[in-house]
Design a protein around this nucleic acid. Structure first.
Lengths: 349, 349
DNA sequence: GTGAAAGCGCTAACAG
DNA sequence: CTGTTAGCGCTTTCAC
């Protein structure tokens, strides 16, 4: 294969069009005043020689590389993949290239990727901060937008994430609608910021309906399949009468809980109802399908890139955006509000 | 936030070190002969002013941008995310940045992304070709490596993919081992190249064991959940006695098949055994867990980048690499080889 | 071993 | 409206 074919430059175009380099440049960059005739000839010449702008050179001259960076924990995680996709699409619209990096929730890796981005001269970056490197980013003088739940720990930076309050509200309302006024809650470990935010929203909802918050049963564990399974196991070991309703703060935990229900010889949704949170694709394939509150991953990615571009253009909005979550209704929630209707399956047995 | 802090250049470093621009450059690039003293002073100066090489400028001068491109159908698809991750990691090791694009299996989008890559002056690209744009890539004179099953349609290009023959062999062997000598096969539509390759391998395995290939039951459908569900439905409508064994050419179809089994009031693995192909994460959360042959996505991505780098460096190997698949054993396959052992669950009912 | 100088492809004053 | 000129930051001859 012919490697390194010499690519035509603006000089070739100018020569062929019989104009000066700068006239050609003006036409090609679409700036300044140009006579129709000149424009025509330059455009034709460019076409003829197969000219393609060298963005490396443009970048060098203008200080704008046309590249954006994205640093997320793991592209292999469906939520983050979704975020990446949103960012990609929005970047493509803006004719920007996106450099994507995975940090594995590791501060050192994150720092390394940030440095790489800086060296690559990206115009700005969207990052889900796992450590305090964001301060470095700021010091670099690189425009950036933060995403995810940990984003708000950092003052003075634009951020976009999902609206946990609205999400919990949505979930609790749905639970109430289906006849589960006071679900048991499975949340993450104490150390995590998201836990607090989630719980606060739950309490707000409970107190707003004049229910006794002390009746709320809370179990916690790691944000994993096993964490959810163990937490659910504990609940089941304790409580053995009547229907149990669960609101899990994370789909992996919800799926783990589902497994625990089976382990205990119970059925979902007949004996136990489960509502998840995240909207991961795997929830569609569990049995029963997992009803869940979906985070708008794609929208978050897209919005973050949008904010970033604004910031790069100097229209720094520096805002905190919270995007609404949506309900994905599948089969893991029994309809207790109208007992005779949906529970026929259970009744038949 | 301080936008556009002037970043120190090689000139600043040279001035501070009290040497010429070129000496500084030599030290910083690690080329040419330099006295220890000079090197020391330059390095110290660089450190002091916080110098960082401008890769845009380097790229312009050297014709190497240090960037690689990756074009896959959809970063949101777990297999492709895995490929992207492998590529990312390998690129990071080589100190390259990776531009990632999703083509949505759309030729036009693919072409657009390829053009963007070309304009961004990437040094090479890894692409899963959905259309015939790869010819363009070749014409561009851009080094590239193809990935995925459609890759081999293109002559004269390096490619890396999974070893379908070995994968099917592995699956069939496992099926035999578990007492399912002649599974029904659910494959993709006739138009797809992967179908043929899969079926050929199945036939090879069957004939090698002196079984009658005419006994092989083949159903096809789209490579989707619904496709698998429908195909399985047809099988179930026809065949109603004894255990049914299924080898699906794709996990989504396998999961669809699982659903069809439930639709028909049957149980997996007691009445129907299912073996999938892909190893998608969701297979861990179905009930029962899906036994599947996993494609080495991450390894494919990593290997592709490796080949690409070799090719860029002029050691064009131009080879076709086939990476082996592995078996993920979960619960969707009954052990028919030793009836009394595992089928106790079914027996109890 | 080191420095001076040319130039990668493009843009942006500055004259004309 | 157009051409001339001077760089952006770096590498790379080519002399010394």
């Amino acid at each position: 294969m012919a490697r390194q074919v010499r690519r035509p430059t603006i000089i070739d175009v100018a020569a062929r069009a019989g104009v000066s380099k700068s006239s050609a440049a003006r036409v090609l960059a679409g700036t300044g005043n140009i006579s129709d005739d000149t424009r025509d000839r330059v455009l034709k010449a460019a076409q003829a020689v197969g000219y393609e702008r060298n963005y490396l050179a443009v970048g060098m001259r203008s200080g704008r590389s046309g590249m954006l960076g994205l640093v997320i924990p793991d592209i292999t995680n469906p939520f983050w993949a979704d975020v990446a996709r949103g960012a990609q699409d929005r970047a493509a619209e803006a004719e920007c290239s996106l450099l994507v990096f995975s940090s594995d929730w590791d501060g050192a890796k994150e720092a390394a990727h940030l440095r790489t981005l800086h060296r690559a001269r990206v115009d700005g970056a969207v990052v889900n901060p796992v450590a305090d490197n964001v301060d470095d980013l700021g010091r670099f003088g690189l425009p950036f937008v933060l995403i995810g739940s940990s984003a708000e720990r950092f003052a003075g930076a634009a951020s976009v994430g999902s609206d946990i309050g609205q999400a919990v509200q949505l979930g609790m309302d749905h639970l109430v609608y289906k006849g589960h006024p006071l679900p048991h809650v499975i949340v993450g470990p104490k150390s995590r910021l998201a836990r607090t935010r989630f719980l606060n929203a739950v309490y707000r909802h409970v107190t707003a309906r004049d229910l006794d918050p002390a009746d709320l049963v809370i179990e916690d564990g790691e944000y994993t399949f096993e964490g959810g399974r163990a937490a659910m196991g504990r609940i089941l070991d304790r409580h053995r009468d009547g229907h149990i309703s669960i609101f899990a703060a994370n789909d992996m935990m919800a799926i783990g809980a589902l497994m625990a229900v089976r382990d205990h010889g119970l059925r979902c949704p007949e004996d136990v109802s489960i509502l998840g949170f995240d909207g991961i694709p795997a929830g569609a394939f569990t049995w029963p399908g997992l009803t869940s509150i979906a985070k708008p991953g794609r929208a978050i990615g897209a919005r973050a890139v949008e904010s970033l571009i604004d910031e790069i253009d100097g229209q720094a909005r520096q805002e905190r955006v919270h995007l609404p979550c949506t309900l994905i209704e599948r089969e893991s929630l029994a309809d207790l509000a109208q007992p005779p209707r949906k529970l026929s399956v259970a009744g038949r047995n």
